[in-house]
Computed example of a mutant assay.
Amino acid sequence: MPDDWQPTASIATLRERARLLARVRAFFAERDVLEVETPVLGHGGSTDPHLASLSLEASTPGGRERLWLQTSPEFHMKRLLAAGSGPIFQLARSFRDGEVGRRHNLEFTMLEWYRPGFSLSALIDESVALVRELLPEAGPRRLRRYRELFREQLQVDPFTTPLESLRRLAGERGGLDMQDADRDGCLDLLMGLVIEPTLGREGIDVVIDYPASQAALARKHRDPEDGVEVAARFELYVSGLELANGYDELTDAEEQTSRFVEDNRERQRLGHGEVGADVRLLAALEAGMPAGSGVALGLDRLIQLALGKASVAEVMAFATPRC
């Protein structure tokens, strides 16, 4: 019999986790945001080339079908928005293959919420307020532009520096052969190794204006500096940890279809398997999803910081591989 049957978090920690979850729910109740529950399984998965989805075969009324464990509740929640739900939030069980470590687990809790009619700026304010609800000593908020972070810390412009120069710099910093890497691959490595560890060390850092190629499900707009296209999204950092990722949500069904196709094309180029696109999300967008903003926050990481733990496993009842 295995001897690792005990939980990875202490019972005292699990009591504290429950207390913090109650505070999260109270935060949204005070703002009249509806709590919802959506399926863990879906006919569509995340086509994001940088995410590894898990799937299974199931017997359904349609016969044996492939269903995807959701990497976040985003697609189902957007279908609720299109159906007229108004502002909604969810504490969702989410799954991402291969992600196990101090900051990751195969199964985790995503706090995700959507605000029809909210600007990205308004959602940033609310996201900071939610973080301060659990981390009251987090310190001041700073708004940081992605482009300026690269200029300050690496002396390169991520939008205009030649790819060969980025490959050389990424290779030097990462100790890797980056000669076949694309621009986003180089930028992601430099962001993760050099810039991210410095963020949120003296407060709450909110990074905005990411490259347009990293828009995912966000709208795009123009950088006022030179008109280059950038993503209307933000990421929020505390103590070197990325906690949240928010978008001015894309509502155009045709553009979303194109992005799904391009994502799967990139997955094939990278040698990843193709993921079935969520056609019901596309139908919901076609029917009309209200304009607004949404954000996904890694709740286990936030609780880890709030309780002063070294890893997310210490705030989960049974983290991988003890599940």
Rank of each mutant, 00 (worst) to 15 (best):
E249Y: 07
D4P: 06
L34S: 00
F28L: 10
E126I: 11
G298N: 08
A310R: 13
A212Y: 04
H43E: 12
R201N: 07
E137P: 03
R19M: 13
Q90P: 04
G292Y: 05
E30A: 15
L149A: 06
L281Y: 02
S165I: 10
R19C: 04
E229K: 03
S85D: 00
M316H: 02
A58T: 14
T13W: 05
D48G: 06
E126D: 13
S165G: 11
R31I: 13
A52F: 03
E249S: 10
F260H: 09
F318D: 05
G227D: 14
I195D: 03
L176I: 07
R145G: 07
S46K: 04
E133M: 10
S311D: 14
Y237W: 13
P321M: 15
T251F: 05
V128E: 13
E242C: 09
L54S: 01
P211F: 07
G185I: 08
I195T: 01
E112I: 10
E266I: 15
L154W: 09
G101E: 04
D300T: 05
R25S: 02
F150E: 01
E225H: 12
L21S: 01
T38L: 10
S85P: 00
A291E: 14
E314M: 01
P197I: 11
G185L: 08
S239K: 13
E137Y: 04
L270D: 08
G63P: 09
N264D: 09
S239T: 11
T109V: 12
D3L: 10
R147H: 12
V194Y: 00
D182P: 05
E225M: 12
D157R: 04
E65Y: 14
L217I: 08
Y210H: 03
A306Y: 04
G185A: 15
A83W: 08
C186K: 04
L163Q: 07
R144A: 07
P224A: 10
F260K: 06
G45H: 04
L41I: 13
F89D: 03
E152D: 15
V228C: 06
A138P: 09
H104W: 11
D300F: 05
T160N: 01
D180A: 15
L143A: 13
S293Q: 05
M289Q: 08
E255F: 04
D97H: 13
S293F: 08
E65C: 04
T160E: 14
A232Y: 02
G117A: 03
D157F: 06
F318H: 07
Q256T: 05
R132F: 07
L67S: 05
L176P: 05
V131W: 00
G308L: 15
E74W: 06
L187K: 00
S53H: 11
V275N: 01
A22C: 08
G227L: 09
R145A: 14
E202G: 10
R142F: 10
L134F: 02
L81E: 03
V33C: 06
G45Q: 03
G101I: 01
V295I: 15
L305S: 00
V100W: 08
D188G: 03
R15M: 14
A52R: 15
E262I: 03
